[in-house]
């Protein structure tokens, strides 16, 4: 396979998704037990780490 000319895109994540200094948008999603979790209500004024990952199955 020709790979010489292929490059990995270099993305500027400072402008992708919610930005530093902005309030993180509200959302409600079910957790692993099917319980709906409202991000900002659930964290109860604690700091939070919100992690986006590929998949738990592969």
């Amino acid at each position: 396979m020709e790979t010489q000319n292929l490059t990995l895109p270099v993305l500027d994540f400072s402008v992708i998704g919610p930005r530093t200094g902005e309030r993180f948008p509200d959302f409600i999603l079910p957790d692993q037990h099917g319980r709906p979790v409202d991000l900002h209500a659930d964290r109860e004024r604690r700091r939070a780490l919100v992690v986006f990952f590929r998949s738990a199955s592969w």
Binding site: L11, F13, I16, G17, P18, R19, T20, G21, E22, R23, F24, L39, H40, R43, R45, R46, R47, A48, L49, V50, V51, F52, F53, R54
Partner: peptide, 14 residues
């Protein structure tokens, strides 16, 4: 999604 994480402060600000 793109792989990564946000740290939010007490007010929910990134």
């Amino acid at each position: 999604p793109h792989p990564g994480m946000f740290l939010l402060d007490e007010d929910g600000v990134v």
